[in-house]
Computed example of a mutant assay.
Amino acid sequence: MGVTGFIGRALLASIFIKNGLDHLQNPEPIVRAAKGAEVPEPEIAVRANSAVMLGAGAMLALGVAPRFATTALAASLIPTTVIGHPFWDKSGKERMHQQSQFLKNLALFGALLAVGSRK
């Protein structure tokens, strides 16, 4: 992989690494959202998801098992997106904000699929 591929992987990974660290250091808001969505064992689920984001993000940034890393990150985005950005339950500016975040996560999901499918 060339320099641009390395930079692209690192940039894509950066949001997962940052959010994984943030959520491990301050899990309460995410745990509240998980409780509201009736996720079983929300504290454990949030910590596990955060650890996946941090670990798989670092793996992706370093180019270690990138297919595994992108698969893990894509899988972690599904509950994160559906639980964290329920724009369909909102109105006005909050709906617009949550919809933008939902679509951003869909774009990240697509980027992970594209990076993970490269040979």
Rank of each mutant, 00 (worst) to 15 (best):
N26L: 15
P27V: 06
P27E: 01
P27K: 13
P27Y: 02
P27M: 12
P27S: 10
E28T: 04
E28V: 07
E28F: 07
P29E: 05
P29V: 01
P29M: 01
I30V: 02
I30L: 05
I30W: 07
V31W: 02
V31I: 13
V31N: 09
V31G: 00
R32S: 08
R32W: 04
R32T: 03
R32G: 06
R32V: 10
R32Q: 04
A33H: 13
A33R: 08
A33Q: 15
A34P: 02
A34M: 03
K35S: 05
K35D: 05
K35I: 05
K35M: 09
G36K: 03
G36Q: 14
G36V: 11
G36T: 03
E38D: 12
E38W: 10
E38L: 09
V39F: 02
V39S: 10
V39N: 03
V39R: 00
V39T: 00
V39G: 08
V39L: 06
P40M: 09
E41R: 07
E41N: 14
E41F: 07
E41Y: 11
P42T: 10
P42H: 10
P42C: 04
P42E: 10
P42R: 10
P42L: 00
E43H: 07
E43K: 14
E43G: 02
I44Y: 01
A45Y: 02
A45E: 00
A45K: 03
A45F: 14
R47L: 00
R47G: 09
R47F: 09
A48D: 12
A48K: 07
A48Y: 09
A48Q: 09
A48V: 04
N49A: 11
N49V: 01
S50C: 13
S50M: 04
S50R: 06
A51C: 13
A51P: 10
A51T: 05
A51G: 00
V52N: 03
V52K: 07
M53Q: 11
M53R: 05
M53W: 15
M53I: 12
L54V: 08
L54N: 15
L54C: 07
L54D: 06
L54G: 12
L54W: 13
G55V: 08
A56R: 14
A56F: 12
A56N: 01
G57T: 12
G57Y: 11
G57V: 15
G57H: 13
A58T: 04
M59H: 06
M59C: 06
M59W: 11
L60K: 11
L60Q: 04
A61Q: 15
A61W: 02
A61Y: 14
L62K: 11
L62M: 14
L62R: 08
L62P: 07
G63N: 15
G63F: 10
G63L: 09
V64R: 11
V64T: 05
V64C: 08
V64L: 14
V64E: 10
V64D: 08
A65T: 11
A65N: 14
P66Q: 08
P66A: 03
P66C: 00
P66D: 05
R67K: 15
